[in-house]
Design a protein around this nucleic acid. Sequence first.
DNA 1: CTGGACTAAAATATCGATATTTGTTGACGC
DNA 2: GCGTCAACAAATATCGATATTTTAGTCCAG
Lengths: 235, 235
Amino acid sequence: MITTDLHPVDEEGAQEFRSRTSETYARIHGDVVSGKLKPGVKLKIEQLREEYDVGATPVREALSFLAADGLVVREDQKGFRVAEVSADEFEDLLAVRCMIEERALRLAISRGGRKWEEGIVLARFRLSGVGRIEGNEAEWERHHRAFHMSLLAACGSSLLLRLSKQFYDENNRYRHLSRLNHATTRDVRGEHEEIAEAVLARDTDRAVGLLVEHYTKTGNLLRIALKDLATDGHG
Amino acid sequence: MITTDLHPVDEEGAQEFRSRTSETYARIHGDVVSGKLKPGVKLKIEQLREEYDVGATPVREALSFLAADGLVVREDQKGFRVAEVSADEFEDLLAVRCMIEERALRLAISRGGRKWEEGIVLARFRLSGVGRIEGNEAEWERHHRAFHMSLLAACGSSLLLRLSKQFYDENNRYRHLSRLNHATTRDVRGEHEEIAEAVLARDTDRAVGLLVEHYTKTGNLLRIALKDLATDGHG
DNA sequence: CTGGACTAAAATATCGATATTTGTTGACGC
DNA sequence: GCGTCAACAAATATCGATATTTTAGTCCAG
């Protein structure tokens, strides 16, 4: 297992953290992904120190980790800032993500066993259960991430899983920044059902096709929203 | 540009660092990749502090960054240690790396222009110039990395480039750990020439085939060496 | 012996303070 | 005016010291 426990929660939320650094990492990570911390914003240590009520060391450590993740950019002697977004970067991300997840999904379908199937069923059930009524946003987000990861869980490659999670989060940031409601725009729930069915039926090509289409559809919407963001978002 | 300047040198070596953190990161990174710091060993802050003559903060920041890179593992309240290696992890790495580089190479060949070609020619020349006589190891390593990256440089995807570099380094660690001499075992120089020729001739399929074969060959040797490492390396 | 609980030592994680660097403002000379 | 440079202010990077947690060792009860 290459990954470190600094990474955000995978399944159940509301864990307790064993270090200030982990907690601070999770919080900043969440704030960047959710768009609360906007692209390009300067991340002043003193400010974050106060915001999260913690010392400078955990803040700097969390930011260092985030920098390697790609969500934050560091420049020596000039501190940290939230990574910029752009249409080009997004295209790049989407394409690489599709490639990674396709591979992971194919492997998972060929290798996955009973336990993997049950994980998908469970994740699908949870996701379908929580409507996106306001207040449940966070919970829906968590279940949505868990669902998508459950599909790949049995791929047998910790590297592919790590990358899938990382890119999921990065893509998610774009979605939030575009204020794209996701669930309201299309029949996302239906798409999830379809994907889950295809996967569980071991219909590999169909599953991959649906998954990539799922991402591409969102991508197309994001692409449009990004243009607006680029034009009026300067300020 | 998502990457941060903490990453190790890409082209010319012997740069000066603008912060203790960068320098410490580069040094630890080098020591892990070169195998001087062996898999599983505990990275005690105090010890590193002394070794690199630097405070605790830069050390911890560098380690946090390395943890996200995957070269180091962190466990809350238990500090850092060098990431373990295993045959399985290596297979995983090799497979993902081939996929990533294949994509990057195809894109580079289709998109690359005059400048990209010149970069390859230059890198090939430099690599061929420095024989692997003892003492030149470091220089050869640098040119070798630069050569492989020059092939992909024009792929147009900063993400693919970032991943390629990361996986190159990780693969390189396995090579060093296996004490595989690389250059002596096969006609590696010839392979590099062949690859460069195919790439410059824009013979995409051949280039990809050669590159993947190049990695796979090394992989096969590493696989053997790894078994030995696993059996007698316990100590 | 064996195992659990307590103690001492080591190492981590964290804070508060300081030195260095960068950014900014405004006076001065051209 | 306009660029330049110096002093000041802000922020970063870094250190040294402290609190907390883990680890190792030891002693006794069973």
